[in-house]
């Protein structure tokens, strides 16, 4: 039961949400690729008030060695929140929530990567939430996928992510922090747009079977919007912002 008492009007009579968005609108999303010097691949995402860095290392030797797999490379993910990322200071030690999120993000990225090309190695993905708003796991996952592409890891597809939810008895796209606290349901979704596969999905809150279907479809629409931002970030990184036509200039 996510619904908590609140004075905030989550959805007014004109279908405008507490932060001024329509029900089918995401917050502002911006992604930059290649923001770190030492990481093999990296990305920075601002998703509403989320500010998240993702850094990728590898494929590289596995430590501890017993974790390595002779058939395939392995993926390790760490989603971590900085102590200053939330209103009340967060203990820097990884919480159970962060451990679970790290696990579901890992399992969301794995189907997109061709790690079987790199047996006995590991690809490490580190996601640091510098400032958290609602939907940080989706933002972190979207950034991580861009960072993996930036690192040149062979991929079948990108993974883009966005949440949908139920607020004031309405299915809305991209639940923000207030809506998450006071809303009725939150469903983060990670999606491979070209393979048409949902690789991350969670839900808390009550939905009727019909609302459930609409919620999944709404979230997938949001994922496709994030995918466009991801592509732009990679185009800016490798083609100097000019798209494909800019890539040959000056050579």
């Amino acid at each position: 039961m996510g619904g908590r008492d609140t004075d905030v009007v989550l959805l007014d009579e004109n279908g405008v949400r507490c932060d001024g968005r329509r029900i089918d609108q995401t917050r502002r999303v911006e992604i930059r690729a290649g923001v770190l010097r030492n990481a093999h691949g990296s990305a920075y995402i601002e998703f509403g008030d989320n500010k998240i860095l993702a850094g990728v290392f590898g494929p590289r030797d596995v430590h501890p060695k017993h974790m390595s797999d002779t058939d395939t490379g392995i993926l390790r993910c760490r989603y971590h929140m900085s102590p200053f990322s939330v209103t009340e200071r967060k203990n820097p030690a990884p919480s159970r929530r962060e451990i679970e999120i790290s696990k579901v993000i890992k399992e969301a990225l794995e189907p997109s990567l061709m790690l079987e090309k790199f047996p006995r190695t590991v690809v490490d993905v580190f996601m640091e939430v510098l400032q958290a708003d609602g939907g940080s796991r989706c933002a972190a996952l979207s950034a991580a996928s861009v960072a993996l592409a930036d690192a040149g890891i062979p991929m079948r597809d990108m993974v883009c992510a966005c949440a949908a939810g139920k607020v004031a008895d309405t299915i809305v796209l991209d639940v923000n922090n207030e809506e998450d606290q006071a809303g009725q349901a939150d469903m983060p979704v990670g999606y491979m747009p070209n393979m048409d596969r949902i690789t991350l999905i969670q839900l808390d809150g009550v939905l009727t079977p019909d609302e459930y279907k609409r919620c999944v479809r709404t979230a997938v629409d949001g994922c496709r919007q994030v995918y466009e931002v991801q592509k732009k970030a990679l185009a800016d990184r490798f083609f100097g912002g000019g798209g494909k036509e800019g890539s040959g200039d000056g050579a």
Partner: peptide
């Protein structure tokens, strides 16, 4: 009605 969901696996 559906009240919680979790996907897992690679």
């Amino acid at each position: 009605n559906v009240c919680a969901l979790q996907k897992g696996g690679s």
